[in-house]
Amino acid sequence: MVTFLDIVIAGLLLGGLYALIAMGLSLQYGVARVLNISHGEFIMIGALTTWTLFQMGVSPLVSLVICGLLTFGLGFIIYRTIFRRLLKSSPSIAAFEGSSMLASFGLMFIIQNIVLIIWGPEIRGYSYLAIPVDLAGALFGANRIVTLGFAIGIGLAFYVFLSHTRMGKAIRAAAQDQATAGLMGVNINHVLALCFGFGAALAGIAGVLISMSYPVHAFMGFEYTIIAIIVVVLGGMGSIPGSFIGGFLLGLIGSIVTYFEPGLALAAYYAIFVILLWVRPTGIMGK
């Protein structure tokens, strides 16, 4: 017997993951103005790297650190080499948003197919923390609860980082107004590259967590990119708290719709997405 509470818990477990994925994208779009379509590929890199390391006996919890650093570095370098150049040559921010989105499409193809050449298209998985845990009468995998814990923990840490540290304040200043932030002595290029790196790191970490509960393969990324975009639109483009809340909201919606009509879950996501963009493009948290 599935109770309402079970649906809510399932929704929160799913939502935590969504929130984590979306926060990274939100940071990249909100500050660096890159709607990064290759976001999911960083998730995929995190997941596949974790799988490989697991085969070598490395615990996924250790992989969290390794993959976090790896994807951070990758994101940082990609920003410095590609997006910074693009930003310089763009006549306006609007033009940059368009061309950077397209460039990230290119990146998606590149990363995905390099991975395919290295790892191949096989679907892989491993078993970690797959112990059933009793939550309010229903059973959930411990790995999914760990995922939720990390998502909330990272979300909160991120919030504290943004609101209480010097670097966090610089990032928020840059999100408000790049030109003014530059005048205030914030090294804008550095901040933008860091943000892109942080966003990629969040994706990489999410990938590690995903690999604990779901199968991993080279094509998995795009699906998560879509989820991230939907959540980011739901929470208000570029608002990190919005993405956090939006992630849980979408998880809940998904869980409820799945209960009534499993075939409509994805359709429901897109319906919310399309309707929201239409009536309230600034999102639920937008001004």
């Binding site: 460039a103 499409f105 193809f109 590149i110 050449i117």
Partner: peptide
């Protein structure tokens, strides 16, 4: 390789 080339060309 086709998709890789497409991505690279786009970039």
């Amino acid at each position: 390789y086709y998709m890789l080339i497409i991505g690279s060309i786009l970039l």
